[in-house]
Structure formats: C-alpha cells, structure tokens
C-alpha cells in the first residue's frame, strides 16, 4: 500500500531525510520513533502528498486518513461538524460524527467549537475525525499527546482493534506507547 524507497528531502539546503527506505506492511501498527527534528512529520507529509520528495520513490495506493500534530480543526465549526465535514454523504457524516464522538468519550461536546474544548478534547475530536473518514491507511502524528493515561490506553485499545484490517502509522516519542501497541518500529 505504501512504497517509500530511497527518499531524500531537504528544506533550505538542510537535509532532513537522506536516502531513507521504509517498508510498511499491509496492515498492523507501525510506529516511527525518534527524537525531535529527525524528520518524522516530514515522512508523514511526504506520504500524505503534502510535500514532494527531492529524490526517491513514494507511492500510496490507497486513500489515507490522518491525525495531524496540531489537530487542524476548523475553528468556526463545531466538534460534530468537524467530523462530519470529511464524510461525503451528509447523513452518514452526521451518524458517524455521533458514533465516533461516543467512541472518543466526547458525548455532550458535539455542538462545541474547538475554542471551547480542552487540549485533550481537541485531540480526541481529531482522532474521531480520522476514524470516521475510515480509510485503509491511517497516519497519526503524536496522537496521544496531552491525554490522560486511562484515556490514552482506552484509545490505544481502539487503535489496536482498527489495526486488524488497516495500516496505522504512528509518530511517537513515547517508548511506553510502542510497548502497549506492540507495534513494529521504524527507528530514525
């Protein structure tokens, strides 16, 4: 589903990724692990097609769903609208918004704008949006940042369930998260 072969990328002459090859499985959880500034988010942006590589081959054969590092919720839309926005069918969108908000323990926050939500709640709305989009590949950039342990574990359980028939790629700094998810690891 994802081919990432001999990829290089630099910004303003500074090399961020050099001749990098990553082998992704068809399904399961892959964690991209490494310190800040080694190009984890750049890899996501390359896979998502938001930036072009300087060199190498990137091919993604399926649509992707994504949890961005900074949530990227539309500020003038409610939490529910932010989720239903990404689903083509309006009715299905509304149904899925309710379903995934429930799954993310966000009941009662449907009609709240992002500015009225806490950091953790915004994160959960972003995760719910990515889940509701329901594609075979899901990229999650530090998805559990700012979540309380109990909630984090609850969401990680859901991610494990989703990974039964999806490829989920997660960027993380936390070794404990990798252990909990029993994920394949790409070290950077």
């Amino acid at each position: 589903m994802i081919t990432f072969k001999s990829v290089s990328k630099s910004f303003d002459g500074e090399i961020v990724i050099s001749n990098k090859t990553i082998e992704f499985p068809e399904k399961g959880i892959v964690c991209i692990f490494g310190p800040s500034g080694v190009g984890k988010t750049t890899i996501f942006n390359l896979i998502a097609g938001l930036i072009e590589p300087d060199d190498g081959e990137i091919e993604v054969t399926e649509d992707i769903s994504m949890v961005f590092q900074e949530d990227r919720l539309v500020p003038w839309l409610t939490a529910g609208e932010n989720i239903s926005l990404v689903i083509e069918d309006k009715e299905l969108g509304q149904r899925n918004a309710i379903k995934y908000m429930k799954a993310m323990q966000l009941v009662g926050a449907e009609s709240k704008r992002p500015s009225e939500l806490s950091g953790g709640m915004k994160r959960r709305v972003a995760i719910a949006r990515a889940m509701a989009y329901d594609k075979r590949i899901m990229l999650m950039d530090e998805p559990f940042k700012g979540l309380e342990v109990e909630l984090k574990n609850f969401i990680m359980d859901q991610v494990i369930k989703l990974a039964e028939d999806k490829l989920i790629v997660i960027v993380t700094h936390e070794k404990a998260e990798i252990d909990y998810l029993m994920a394949e690891v790409v070290w950077l």
Binding site: M66, F68, R72, V74, V86
Partner: peptide, 24 residues
Amino acid sequence: IKLIEMTKVFKLPRSRVLKAVYIP
C-alpha cells in the same frame, strides 16, 4: 494553509472547501 492541507488529505470536494474554509 494548515486547514487547506487538511482538506487535501481528506480529499474534500472543492465546493466543501470553499464553503467550510475559504468563505468563512
């Protein structure tokens, strides 16, 4: 630009991007 990138990843149709992001 980050919202525009988000709409690209989620492959939102142009009309929806216009209504939900650009016009507001």
